[in-house]
């Protein structure tokens, strides 16, 4: 009994089968205005709307996914994240979520800026290219790394901007973004030590710095 809570703390529960969703679900407070970029079929938005009463909006490029999102009652717009945020007024949202998509955008820096223009805070989750398995894969094979997290052949990968935990921290520092919270995951396990080496997925909660 006494050992269980301690062991449990090392694990993050899953939401819709994903630990990063569980973290996002904890961060977002009830009634918030939320925009999910690359929202897929809108599962996370639907959960947030039903369980947190958020005002949920999404952007997704795949028409088939947008269809399924709208069919489940989520207001999703079919469009490209790289261009799609320009119409929104400043500060339209409390949270703008970008889950596992930053590495797929053409201009990640611009996307981050836009997220923090239309939203008060941004939640960015991304696969960590600095994980030891990725490093080992490349070292051993000499080819583009392929792991559980990056399973694609280089010519088929949707990932066009690989980044690590360190890279994101560095960009945040250069851009004057405030990292309010950071979470590191290996599977469902929380990583506390050497995140750039041991984390498979990183979740950052950032806001615009005072100067910008």
């Amino acid at each position: 009994m006494s050992a269980q809570p301690a062991r449990k703390q090392a694990f993050v529960r899953e939401l819709l089968g994903r630990s990063d969703y569980a973290i996002i679900g904890d961060i977002v407070e009830p009634g918030a205005r939320v925009l999910d970029l690359g929202c897929g079929e809108g599962e996370l938005l639907e959960w947030l709307a039903q369980n947190k009463g958020v005002e949920a909006r999404g952007v997704e490029i795949s028409g088939a996914k947008v269809q399924r999102a709208i069919a489940r009652g989520v207001s999703v717009y079919q469009g490209d994240i790289d261009q799609g945020l320009a119409d929104y007024p400043d500060g339209a949202f409390d949270y703008v979520i970008l889950s596992q998509t930053l590495q797929e955008t053409h201009r990640p820096r611009k996307v981050l800026h836009e997220m923090l223009r239309v939203g008060r805070r941004a939640i960015v989750a991304f696969p960590n290219f600095g994980h030891w398995r990725v490093r080992l894969s490349m070292l051993v094979s000499g080819g583009a790394p392929r792991t559980k997290l990056f399973p694609y052949e280089w010519y088929e990968s949707p990932n066009i901007h690989f980044l690590t935990v360190l890279d994101f921290e560095a960009l945040a520092a250069v851009e004057g973004l405030v990292v309010e919270r950071r979470y590191f995951l290996a599977g469902r396990r929380k990583v506390t030590l050497l995140p750039n080496l041991l984390a498979e997925v990183a979740v950052f909660l950032v806001s615009a710095g005072r100067l910008s």
Binding site: E55, R57, G63, V66, Q67, A69, I70, V74, S75, V76, Y77, Q78, G79, D87, Y88, P89, A92
Partner: peptide, 15 residues
Amino acid sequence: RALRARNCDVAYVEL
């Protein structure tokens, strides 16, 4: 786009 500029609740898809 005009509805988004007003922050209206809008869903859109091209079938």
